[in-house]
Design a protein around this nucleic acid. Structure first.
Lengths: 251, 251
DNA sequence: ATTTGGATGTCGGGA
DNA sequence: TCCCGACGTCCAAAT
């Protein structure tokens, strides 16, 4: 762990170039007054101001302002990072494919720290769309009595559908699941699935059911217009493995 | 600027609670070994490991691992943050609407820093979808000779369209622009626009043109099937105001 | 407060 | 590699 308060550009550069070998898990944070130029998928300029800059070992670079969850400027993982001095410390972060360059120039540095993170844990998360599809697959009756799942995540030339089913009358039912709410886009998607399915299978009758905890107003209208169906469906999720104990203690 | 190396939980808590008045632009970073419990829109557990935790003055909390641009856990702006000690430092970040709680427990702390960021600058960015629409609006001939823009961002009951135009023969043309590439979703959207427009306006002939630097293969097929059109269109973007000088010096 | 669609989205999975 | 869709997406603008 290295920490410098108000270092000069040269002092900062020296610290950053010192232990280039132990760089595996090295992380750098710099608090200082900087400007940022970016050219790549878009182009941007951010004039001088105080920010927190973070450089991860995988090449991620983030420039954080004092608000919001999103960095004001950044480069994704895989970026190659160079440090140099030209009237102040400069961080140059380049990557190819797409070609992108971000260049940070520091007018002054409040603090610089270099440290390593040892982290073997992986996050365990539940409540995603796939978890809802799981639930429906294991008990299709929560959508409709007599519904039977034929296939999951079937690829069609119009894209993927979450569940291919049959209702109690043997009619094909295409089920699309969203974890938050049904948007107009989801309805368009379903429409295209249905059209494609009818053409490919020469079927006159195919039902389309959209499942989510909510529907937006416009989506609801579209669903009605197009003869589709909506089922409100959410579920109480629980983490499934041994980590559960820790979560129980949390509530 | 306050900086503590390997503080005890109590020392950390004291530092964090000290200057609650000057909290306007205060930012906190903590490097340490922690676990994270989250319950809200989903539910997650992250076991002990070293991370960088950032708390912004607007209530944003981020837990960053040693890889990737995205925090492994977080709370968005507007979250209420409390610090306490229970066998180690605890950060409890709650918000309502939706109800979400994230709780970070530190087993140990490598470093804690508290500082403020003075930043009056706003980012100037160009190359977004709106900039491409601007370009087309100012010179529709880049899509097609004789094309005339009737209206921009027209709301329809099926959603919004980027440009409503007329070709040299007076035929209505609906133009949809994407900054990167045309995906199947964009085609579905266009299809829905067209269907809606024909119904509402009782027109037999309406053209749909999708504009982007690229099309995906599936989208290209869909476009052909449905009698739509694609125009490859990108543009060299330049920042427009006085900041230009700085960018020129950059390249 | 809700809805809607863009984003330098990022990220993971599959062909 | 490209393509595709999910995300605790985040975010701003409009209703």
């Amino acid at each position: 762990m290295k920490y410098l308060i108000s270092p000069s550009a040269d002092e900062a550069l020296q610290a950053l170039n010192e232990s280039l070998s132990s760089i595996r898990r090295r992380m750098v944070t710099i608090v200082g007054c900087c400007k940022v130029d970016y050219t790549g998928r878009a182009k941007s300029f951010l004039d001088y101001g105080d920010r927190l800059v973070i450089v991860k070992a995988d090449g991620t670079v983030m420039v954080h302002g004092n608000e919001k969850r999103e960095p004001v400027n950044w480069q994704p993982p895989g970026t190659s990072v160079k440090y140099m001095v030209e009237e102040g410390l400069i961080i140059e972060a380049r990557r190819a494919s797409p070609t992108e360059t971000m260049r940070i120039h520091f007018k002054s540095i409040q603090a610089l720290s270099i440290f390593t993170l040892n982290d073997g844990a992986e996050i365990n998360i539940v409540g995603e769309e796939a978890d809802i599809v799981d639930r429906i697959e294991s008990d299709p009756s929560i959508i409709e009595e007599g519904l039977r799942v034929v296939r999951r995540e079937k690829a069609t030339s119009s894209g993927f559908i979450d569940l291919l089913c049959e209702d109690r009358n043997g009619v094909t039912v295409i089920v699309e699941v969203k974890r938050t709410s049904i948007s107009p886009n989801a309805v368009y998607q379903m429409e295209a699935y249905l059209a494609d399915f009818k053409k490919k299978n020469d079927k006159a009758i195919v039902r389309g059911i959209l499942c989510a905890p909510r529907v937006s107003e416009m989506a609801r209208t579209l669903i009605a217009e197009k003869g589709l169906e909506y089922r409100q469906i959410g579920y109480e999720f629980e983490l499934k493995d041994k980590k559960q104990a820790s979560l129980d203690s949390f509530k």
